[in-house]
Amino acid sequence: MSSPGDSRRTTARRRETALFLLAVPALLLLGIIFAWPVLRLLAMSVEDGTLANFEKATLDELYLYVLFDSVKIAAMVMAICLLVAYPVAFWLSRAGRWGVALGMFALLLPFWTSVLVRTYAWLVLLGRNGVVNRWLRDAGLIDAPLPLLHNTSGVLIGMVHVLLPYMVFPIYASLLRIDPDLSRAAEGLGAPAWRSFLRVTFPLSLPGVSAGCALVFVLSLGFFITPALLGGGRVIMVSMLIEQQVREFLDWPFAAALSTVLLVATLAIYALIGRITRGARHA
């Protein structure tokens, strides 16, 4: 016996199944090229039946230092990106048609250019006799060239440049979603522009800030090309360490353990950022 209610539920369930089928190709692709390799990696790291590789990765001072340094650099890149990107996103959200077109062009052109090309361009710009140092010297601002390359500054400059759009776009999108009447209402109720920004616009843009921070941080933590080239071997990130283990020492299990540690650290920090911004929003 089936009541009309049952057949309705069946129809509804069929619709849900049909919708789910649409997601299957993407899920398969993710499963094959992401989930499976990650699991393999995990398996590889404990191949010898012990947790020795993990012990080495998490207790050895050298590796801990590199991990800590990577997190520090990622956090700095994130912070600088946020400071630079927020004003840009804010200006874009208030700009006219031509302003937006110009801003998008300026952001997207480098975004679509190869990271490798851009990193080499920074090598030319930041060297001892690079364009930047020559300008500063010619302008009489400095006597000796600034050390901009093969150190943390170089890595930060290059990474911020590459990752800036990942911060600008989420913030821009969340600023656009805010009803413009809200800041008008705030001003009409007696708030100067800066208080209206602090009390209304900024808190409402936090979802974008959170998304941007998470994106930039996660991408920074695993960054390879830019720190490898601009750091000149003096700045070592976890990704470089992993590459070294595989390419030079052929120690796949240890590389796998390091990768797993990196993945867990990434997820943990990702969760932390989400929690902080959610907390700030309801403060």
């Binding site: 009803d179 009447d181 809200l182 008008r184 209402a185 705030a186 009390r199 209304v200 808190p203 409402l204 929003r281 309801h282």
Partner: peptide, 9 residues
């Protein structure tokens, strides 16, 4: 305002 413009947060 037409849509009230209450501060949602």
């Amino acid at each position: 305002f037409q849509n009230y413009a209450l501060f949602p947060h």
